[in-house]
Simulated scan of single mutants.
Amino acid sequence: MRRLESAAALILPLLWNNRVLPALDLPLRGRTAANIAFATGYTKLFGGRPNWLSASGFRWGLGSAAIVFTGYAVALAVPSLRRLPLEIAVRAPETSTLEWIALHIPVGTVLAEEAIFRATLDPVLAESVGAPVISAVDFGLWHIQPARAAGDPVLPTVLATTLAGLVFTELRRRAGSATAPALLHLAINAGGALAPAAARWVDGLRR
């Protein structure tokens, strides 16, 4: 019975994000709402344990996020590194940057994905051999269709998000809370979304 539960917990997110959600052909706000609805149902079905209000989760998460933001600040300060975000296209075509940063990244992406993977799938797989790797690979495969839709190379995207999944899972384990990886995840995604505009602004100041 435990194996069936683990198999279902692994397969359902992949079916949702790579098949069902794309087939619905929803606008951005609809996708955000649908992702949260799926994450809520998934968490309840498999008994997710996010422990969102954990003090340890906030400590680990804020510390990790600070490292990420420091990295972005260094990249913006060094001209040779600042060229990298300048070459990145802004990917929020259906909404304003403010709405993208304030709603769709933290809610539709970070909250939904952390509720599914770190708050729920990780505990379900806790007794499995190689559980962190299995969960991380599932997280990587979750990004197949989003990579295709964005025109990104699929294999590098899956590998990069699998690596991120390993880090997020380890952070959840150490903090005992999904809040820690959620804050790190938010820092990475929000910082990446803001980096091109920030790089243009810094370039303008230095001219």
Rank of each mutant, 00 (worst) to 15 (best):
P93K: 04
L159I: 12
A164Y: 07
S96I: 12
A34V: 03
N51R: 15
S128R: 15
L186G: 06
N51C: 12
S177E: 04
A112M: 07
P50S: 08
F69R: 00
G151M: 12
A9M: 09
L155H: 01
L171A: 00
V110P: 00
G176Q: 03
V154W: 04
A66E: 06
A190W: 03
R2G: 13
F58Y: 14
L28H: 06
H185P: 01
T161I: 07
T97L: 15
L45N: 04
L26T: 07
L26K: 07
V202S: 02
E5V: 15
P123D: 10
L186N: 01
P156Q: 08
F38V: 07
A150K: 14
F117P: 04
G151S: 13
R148P: 03
N51P: 05
R49D: 09
T32W: 00
L159R: 01
E94K: 07
V74P: 01
A195H: 05
P123R: 06
A119P: 02
I67Q: 02
I116F: 04
P181G: 02
E87K: 14
T109C: 09
V68I: 14
V167F: 10
S96H: 11
R173E: 07
L163Q: 09
E170C: 04
R207Q: 12
K44M: 15
L163H: 04
G47H: 13
P93D: 10
